[in-house]
C-alpha cells in the first residue's frame, strides 16, 4: 500500500469515526451517522432519507472471504463536504448483499462514503477497495480502540 498516493485518512474526520458500536440495524446506524454529519455540516437534510432508500434499493454489503463489510453511500447532491465515516460494530450490523439482496452479511466494519464528485476520487476509492481486500489491515480497523488508531491504520 506504500505506493498509494491518496490516503483514506485524508477524508477522515475525528467526529465521523464511531468505534465499538452496537447498532441493531442499518437504519439505526444511518440515523446516528446522519445526525453527526448534519451537525458537522457534511450533509443536507435529505441525506438520511436518501441513504436509507438507496440502501434498500441497492444494498452495499460485501461478503469477503472471512468477513463482511459495507460501503453505504448515496446521491452526490446530499453531500456538502466530502467525508468517509468509519464505523466498527461489536456484533456486526446486518446488511443486504450488493450481489444478492436476499442474502444478509454481518458487517463489523462499515465505511459510509460521502462523495460528491464522480470520477474525481478514483485513487481514494481504489485505496479503499484495496483496504477492504486486505484482511490483515481490516482486522486492525475492526480491533481499533482509539480514533487515532484509525488515522494511523488508514
Amino acid at each position: 500500500m506504500a505506493e498509494e498516493k491518496v490516503k483514506i485518512s485524508n477524508y477522515l474526520n475525528q467526529q465521523m469515526i464511531f468505534l465499538d458500536q452496537d447498532f441493531k440495524s442499518t437504519d439505526e446506524l444511518f440515523e446516528a451517522v446522519a445526525q453527526k454529519a448534519a451537525t458537522e455540516g457534511f450533509v443536507t437534510d435529505s441525506f438520511l432519507p436518501k441513504i436509507k432508500q438507496r440502501e434498500s434499493t441497492f444494498p452495499t454489503g460485501l461478503q469477503l472471504e472471512t468477513r463482511g463489510v459495507a460501503i453505504p453511500h448515496t446521491d452526490a447532491d446530499t453531500i456538502k463536504k466530502e467525508f468517509i465515516a468509519v464505523i466498527t460494530d461489536k456484533n456486526g450490523v446486518p446488511f443486504k448483499r450488493m450481489d444478492d439482496p436476499d442474502a444478509d452479511v454481518s458487517a463489523k466494519v462499515i465505511f459510509v462514503l460521502g462523495l460528491n464528485q464522480p470520477h474525481a476520487q478514483l485513487e481514494m476509492l481504489q485505496t479503499l477497495m484495496a483496504t477492504i481486500q486486505d484482511d490483515a489491515l481490516l482486522d486492525k480497523v475492526e480491533k481499533a480502540s482509539k480514533i487515532d488508531d484509525i488515522f494511523d491504520i488508514l
Binding site: 438507496r54 441497492f58 453511500h73 450488493m98 462523495l115 464522480p118 470520477h119 481504489q126
Partner: peptide, 15 residues
C-alpha cells in the same frame, strides 16, 4: 453501472 453512478462504478471503470 452502479446504484448512484458515483462510487463503485468509478472503481470498476478503471478496472
Amino acid at each position: 453501472a452502479c446504484g448512484a453512478g458515483i462510487a463503485t462504478s468509478t472503481v470498476v471503470m478503471k478496472k
